[in-house]
Amino acid sequence: MTTSAVDSFLPEALQFRSGAPLVDIGANLTHESFQRDLVDVIARAKAANVTTLIVTGTDIEHAELAVKMAQQVPGIYATAGVHPHDASGWNSDVANQLKALHQQPEVVAVGECGLDFNRNFSTPAEQERAFEAQLALAIESGLPLFLHERDAGQRMREILHSWRDDISEAVIHCFTADRETLHGYLDLDLHIGLTGWICDERRGHHLRSIVKDIPLERLMVETDCPYLLPRNLPAKLKGRRHEPALLPWIVREIAQWHNVTETELGAVTTRTAQRFFRLDAET
Rank of each mutant, 00 (worst) to 15 (best):
H62F: 13
F131E: 14
L247M: 15
C113M: 08
V268Q: 06
L38I: 06
E61W: 11
T30R: 06
R278E: 09
R179I: 01
Y77H: 11
Q103I: 00
T30Q: 01
G142P: 15
T283S: 13
S209Y: 02
L188Y: 08
E264Y: 05
L137P: 11
E12K: 04
L228Q: 07
A95T: 14
V41Y: 13
C225H: 00
A138C: 08
C174G: 15
T272L: 14
L279D: 01
A63D: 01
T223N: 11
L160N: 07
E140M: 14
I159E: 11
R179G: 00
V171N: 04
D213W: 02
E169K: 00
H183T: 13
I250Q: 14
T3W: 05
A177R: 10
L147Y: 06
L216W: 02
G266V: 12
I159W: 11
H206Y: 03
A152C: 06
V23A: 01
I167Q: 05
A267T: 15
R157L: 07
Y227A: 05
A152G: 07
I42C: 13
V50H: 08
I210D: 07
F34D: 05
E12I: 13
Q104M: 08
T261G: 11
G26F: 01
F9P: 06
C225D: 03
A87I: 03
A27S: 09
T181M: 05
I139M: 08
A45S: 15
R218M: 11
D116F: 07
L216M: 11
H148D: 06
A235C: 02
D59G: 01
E132F: 05
R252I: 12
G184T: 04
I139V: 15
A95I: 15
M220H: 09
D93V: 15
Y227S: 02
P144W: 01
T195I: 13
T123R: 09
D165W: 10
T176M: 11
I60G: 04
D7F: 03
R164M: 11
N118G: 07
L228V: 02
A273W: 08
A78H: 01
A235D: 08
A152D: 04
L279Q: 00
L190Q: 06
G142D: 06
T79N: 01
P244A: 07
G19I: 00
A87V: 04
E112W: 02
N28E: 04
T270Q: 09
L190R: 04
A281H: 05
E180Y: 08
P248N: 12
E201C: 12
T195C: 10
D7P: 02
